[in-house]
Design a binder for these strands. Sequence first.
DNA 1: AACCCGTGGTT
DNA 2: TAACCAAGGGT
Length: 347
Amino acid sequence: MTASISDNLLAWYDRNARDLPWRNPPGRALPGDPAWPYRVWLSEVMLQQTTVAAVKPYFAKFVETWPDVAALAAASDDDVMAAWAGLGYYSRARNLVKCARAVAARGGFPATEAELRKLPGLGDYTAAAVAAIAFGRRAVVVDANVERVVARLFAIDEPLPGARRAIRAAADSITPAARSGDFAQALMDLGSHVCTSRAPRCLICPLAADCAGRLQGAPDQLPVKPPKKVVPQRTGTAFWITRARGKEVWLVTRPAQGMLGGMRALPDDGWSAQADGSGKPPLAGDWQRLGAVRHGFTHAHLTLEVRRLDTLSRPRGEGQWWPVEKIAEAGLATLFAKAAALALAKA
DNA sequence: AACCCGTGGTT
DNA sequence: TAACCAAGGGT
């Protein structure tokens, strides 16, 4: 009798699992430790559409600053947003605080996938992942890695996103009742290092003998993806407004909705992914052109002009004067950090 | 359901 | 180098 797919994969995982800070080697929180679900949840939210390498320093900073969910629940929105600055997809940070407060209020994380799914920032993937990894529940955990591995394993050639139903059913069919969390992480490790998007390493794959995609000859062609859309080019202007001979700079907080929502930022001319900015500054004066920075978003590429003015006037609208020497602590998203760096380089 | 939302590494 | 891609969620 041949070993099952899950047995093969778990045996491979026992030998090849990555050592990651949110997993459970000696000296770290263990399953059963009250801090364990918190660390699993935090890492899973950070890892949404974000690479392991990018997450590591943020995860370390967060668990150092806020060791448990009660500590995070007590943090200010501004502090959490600033700590998240640079990681991207800032709605995650807004939902992170909401979720922490809801969890703290109810005395801990719920242990079932269905209850976890109701928390802000937890969709189908994250609810399943936390239920499986933190609470040992059987759950069908489907992220982009699992989608790719399963589409190949079962030779599912229907294009995404339509293929998701079949992929999920196939993933369900191979998910074991025991070690469900390890199984999920094993599929993800396999997808990130062996069954990679462009050049799958079938020769070292523990599932190669069972892989219908490989037997058909072109596993790298699966899953079939929809055609990509053209990314528009946009232009905008950011304003570096200082007083006291450049010692303080005017910062605003962006609206909670929309791009870079809730983040501290330089004032700008209203550019968006849908339209160019007006170019109009928030106050009249002898503006100096400093050049431009370029930044790529998922759905638009932006060229952001940077202009400078030292003034005695208070700009229109809400905002605050921020010490320039502490600009690194303002929590600027990468786009505005680039603009600030340009302004300071030309000072 | 289709679209919006960041960033940095890889090829 | 430009395109591709990543442990997706909200609306």
